Every structure is written in structure tokens, then in C-alpha cells.
Measured scan of single mutants.
Amino acid sequence: MDETGKELVLALYDYQEKSPREVTMKKGDILTLLNSTNKDWWKVEVKITVNGKTYERQGAVPAAYVKKL
């Protein structure tokens, strides 16, 4: 869990989004888990830093590609 009490997951593999509802992640990324009720796809929040600014993006990733921490 992070400092706000939200559950975290670890990306076990790289994943490139294939639709606007998904998010890209790299192996080793730590993501915030938002919903894991679907056994195949979990909704997560990814933090992306671009030019020193951090953005948050929500989307789905394959459940088999992440592990709860």
C-alpha cells in the first residue's frame, strides 16, 4: 500500500497499450491498483513524468502482467 492506503501492484512485464482504455507500463513499474474485480484486466493508475511534470493516467492492464505488493 502507498501512503494514502491504496493498494500497489508491480509490473512483471512490459505492456504497450492497444486502445485508449489501456495504459502502457514497463517491467518494474509500481502502479496504483484502482479495481481488480475483473479477473483478466485490472484498472490501474500510472504516474508519467514528462519534462519534469508528473501526470496521472488511469487505464486497464492485463492482470497476469502485474502482481499485488
Rank of each mutant, 00 (worst) to 15 (best):
residue 60 A to H: 15
residue 22 E to L: 04
residue 31 L to V: 05
residue 59 G to Y: 05
residue 57 R to F: 09
residue 67 K to S: 09
residue 50 V to P: 00
residue 56 E to P: 14
residue 3 E to H: 14
residue 17 E to V: 05
residue 26 K to F: 09
residue 63 A to G: 04
residue 68 K to R: 12
residue 15 Y to K: 00
residue 33 L to T: 00
residue 4 T to Q: 12
residue 37 T to I: 09
residue 25 M to Q: 01
residue 8 L to C: 15
residue 13 Y to N: 08
residue 16 Q to L: 12
residue 6 K to W: 08
residue 57 R to W: 07
residue 30 I to P: 00
residue 65 Y to R: 06
residue 21 R to M: 14
residue 25 M to K: 01
residue 22 E to S: 05
residue 53 K to P: 02
residue 52 G to L: 04
residue 8 L to I: 07
residue 6 K to F: 12
residue 55 Y to T: 11
residue 33 L to N: 00
residue 68 K to T: 06
residue 43 K to T: 15
residue 55 Y to A: 08
residue 34 L to A: 02
residue 67 K to N: 04
residue 59 G to Q: 01
residue 27 K to D: 01
residue 12 L to I: 10
residue 19 S to M: 05
residue 43 K to W: 15
residue 29 D to M: 12
residue 61 V to P: 03
residue 15 Y to I: 01
residue 69 L to W: 06
residue 47 K to S: 12
residue 21 R to H: 14
residue 58 Q to F: 06
residue 25 M to P: 01
residue 56 E to G: 11
residue 22 E to Y: 05
residue 49 T to M: 11
residue 28 G to H: 03
residue 8 L to V: 08
residue 64 A to T: 09
residue 62 P to R: 04
residue 52 G to W: 03
residue 1 M to H: 14
residue 33 L to K: 01
residue 23 V to M: 07
residue 64 A to P: 06
residue 56 E to C: 15
residue 54 T to G: 06
residue 45 E to T: 09
residue 56 E to H: 15
residue 63 A to V: 05
residue 44 V to M: 00
residue 27 K to Y: 03
residue 55 Y to S: 10
residue 44 V to S: 00
residue 24 T to S: 15
residue 36 S to N: 07
residue 30 I to H: 03
residue 42 W to E: 00
residue 56 E to A: 15
residue 1 M to V: 12
residue 64 A to V: 08
residue 32 T to Y: 09
residue 31 L to S: 01
residue 47 K to L: 12
residue 55 Y to M: 11
residue 62 P to M: 05
residue 8 L to N: 05
residue 38 N to C: 10
residue 45 E to V: 11
residue 39 K to M: 10
residue 49 T to A: 07
residue 40 D to P: 00
residue 52 G to D: 07
residue 28 G to V: 03
residue 58 Q to R: 10
residue 45 E to R: 10
residue 30 I to F: 04
residue 21 R to G: 15
residue 8 L to K: 12
residue 45 E to G: 12
residue 11 A to M: 04
residue 50 V to A: 09
residue 23 V to A: 05
residue 52 G to N: 07
residue 41 W to G: 01
residue 21 R to C: 15
residue 15 Y to D: 02
residue 44 V to R: 00
residue 17 E to P: 14
residue 41 W to A: 00
residue 21 R to E: 14
residue 69 L to F: 08
residue 59 G to V: 06
residue 54 T to Q: 11
residue 31 L to C: 06
residue 45 E to K: 10
residue 5 G to M: 12
residue 64 A to M: 10
residue 3 E to C: 15
residue 23 V to K: 01
residue 7 E to D: 10
residue 35 N to D: 15
residue 53 K to Q: 13
residue 49 T to Y: 10
residue 48 I to S: 06
residue 62 P to S: 03
residue 61 V to E: 00
residue 20 P to I: 08
residue 12 L to R: 03
residue 6 K to G: 11
residue 20 P to D: 13
residue 21 R to F: 14
